[in-house]
Design a protein around this nucleic acid. Sequence first.
DNA 1: CATGAATGAGATTTCATTCAT
DNA 2: AATGAATGAAATCTCATTCAT
Lengths: 203, 203, 203, 203
Amino acid sequence: MRRLVADPQTSTLTARGRRTRAKLLGAAERVFGEQGFERASIVEITRAAGVAQGTFYVYFESKQSVYTQLVDTLGTTLRRRLSEAVEGLQTRMEVEEAGLEAFLAFIREHRHLYKIVRQAEFVDESLYRSYYAKLAEGYVRGLRAAMTSGEFRSFDPEAIAYALMGIFDFIGMRWVLWEDTLPPAEVRRDVLAFLGRGLLAER
Amino acid sequence: MRRLVADPQTSTLTARGRRTRAKLLGAAERVFGEQGFERASIVEITRAAGVAQGTFYVYFESKQSVYTQLVDTLGTTLRRRLSEAVEGLQTRMEVEEAGLEAFLAFIREHRHLYKIVRQAEFVDESLYRSYYAKLAEGYVRGLRAAMTSGEFRSFDPEAIAYALMGIFDFIGMRWVLWEDTLPPAEVRRDVLAFLGRGLLAER
Amino acid sequence: MRRLVADPQTSTLTARGRRTRAKLLGAAERVFGEQGFERASIVEITRAAGVAQGTFYVYFESKQSVYTQLVDTLGTTLRRRLSEAVEGLQTRMEVEEAGLEAFLAFIREHRHLYKIVRQAEFVDESLYRSYYAKLAEGYVRGLRAAMTSGEFRSFDPEAIAYALMGIFDFIGMRWVLWEDTLPPAEVRRDVLAFLGRGLLAER
Amino acid sequence: MRRLVADPQTSTLTARGRRTRAKLLGAAERVFGEQGFERASIVEITRAAGVAQGTFYVYFESKQSVYTQLVDTLGTTLRRRLSEAVEGLQTRMEVEEAGLEAFLAFIREHRHLYKIVRQAEFVDESLYRSYYAKLAEGYVRGLRAAMTSGEFRSFDPEAIAYALMGIFDFIGMRWVLWEDTLPPAEVRRDVLAFLGRGLLAER
DNA sequence: CATGAATGAGATTTCATTCAT
DNA sequence: AATGAATGAAATCTCATTCAT
């Protein structure tokens, strides 16, 4: 209510402070991922981080504030991971394939972050939209280039971007989340074949 | 004294009771849809239904209990709506097209139910999975038939079922939820073209 | 934050509820009077009232809300007490004398309410001003009448109203509050003599 | 380890320390004046002073300790100001007039200190009483002298001292605090006329 | 002398649920 | 069948104060 400053930036902290903040962020990621935003409690986060309850508020303005940072970080990391994974590839189809692999690997490592993002819909709608909007943006750029080069047919790139994100999202959910495994080879093959036939220009 | 029986079914109630129960369910749908499961409160539901707080527990065992019924009802209704929409159609592609239209129309009418379902992931994981699993089941049947008839190529039907659900889900989210409109004609056209090329057997 | 109704009015409550509400109000008066607004706690109020913590919020919206009601009630009661005490008196000087006595008697009965009112300055400035403004209003009316009738000299009635309220306030503080006694007879006599000489018209 | 000594006096400090201490006192005056004792926070005081939180406890034992010093200082300053304002005046009525002016001018300059003093009632009752008791003491001396000299009638000097303080206090509150202006000339004139007629001996 | 990280007790408020009527 | 009063656990957040550096 009578808050005067934003969350301290990493840069203004001492080494000790940086460590504590990192412990809290890690704990928050775990707890939010397991319980969802509403069910997660500050007590549990601080207990998991091994600090006193009050310490939380030295580093974060509110429960929502850490959550937002977590989602932002997650989105940024995922997008970086994706762009690293496809760097230097020649064809768009190679990009799609490598992108799918990278995405599946990423959510395997970060099962909780998957859940974290979905919860955003209920915590902060704009955060949620912007997460997907930013992903879509990169996607749209890539699709447009593939259309220009003649590799892909011509279509509304945003529609296809959301369609592709939906495919990846649900495939990840079905196998990585629910079975805790990478989808079997034939699943990946069939999904990629679907993409290829659906989007490649007739040669 | 702990409750020993499940929620009274419509069948065991008097006319008056049936009416009260229906009012409560309607109110719950609205409130859960607007606020999400955790943020919704029983007080608000009963207030919206115009009954006293205690009355809620005459009809439902717990907050979670109404919620579960709501999700179940939603899933059933959607599946019925979809199957009605495609009844009597000849080709699988006609089915996909009609299914997409029906799905989009349905979530337009039930924007809150869309949100309700997503929240299930955090309330009762098995409820959530079963919602999609049941949808997928019907899808898989249809796809298998289309493969057998030779209309569709051969692929892992479950993989493609989830891929298609993901597409529909994200397209619905992007346009119906975020823009409160049916997706523009070219979006629907391009999505369906993508499906067709991706799945139809070469003639 | 998501409050939907105001504090329930006495009129909408059952007998049991009315009793509980009264217990809470009484306890609040005692606790606020002893500790001041900030130091008083809801826990202590409910403990003093012999009810559970949550019960407080069945009857009052917030800590501030009971407090406001208390101050309002106090002001109203005091003003009624004063007007009853001077009813039917002939001269303004009789009114002043009876008013002083009634005021001193009132704060003797309600030592805590004295303290409660002062605290209002820090809780809700407008509440505080209005408490005195309403008292002053009645005072001004009386003084004007006494000037018109020729009993009192002519002066700015609001200035004198505040001056007189200041006198009463400080005399009450010095003797009733600090010594827990009515001021000695000579004090009252000298104060009234001061008033009389200061305000009466020369005959 | 508990502090064993009182707050360091100005005299025991280096020049740098004296400056820091002064900055803290000034900030405390501002913050207490705006927010009241309970709502004011050490963080805010130190932030306003531009020092770290811990620094506060180098100079003051506790929150209450600065507050007490502030009130003491305020009382002393006011009494000095008053006595300077009336120095060398011949009649008591001249003293009253000059005293009123000086008082009003003082609280105009120190609106927050006015509020600070009132809050003392809730922080440290004895501090509060002593503030007024000391003021009253000087007043009583002056009144006694005026009675002895025959300028004033004979009355209980303490009663009249508190009555006069009450007048000044309320006039100051009504105009300086609430309107942020000196009371209009007629208000001051009428108040002084009231005093004069009320207290002066018949000639 | 000064810092800023850390603490933990305590405050207000919310809400699902129970129960006597 | 319906009510509404009552509960108490739990949640978020604040803040004076301590202490190692």
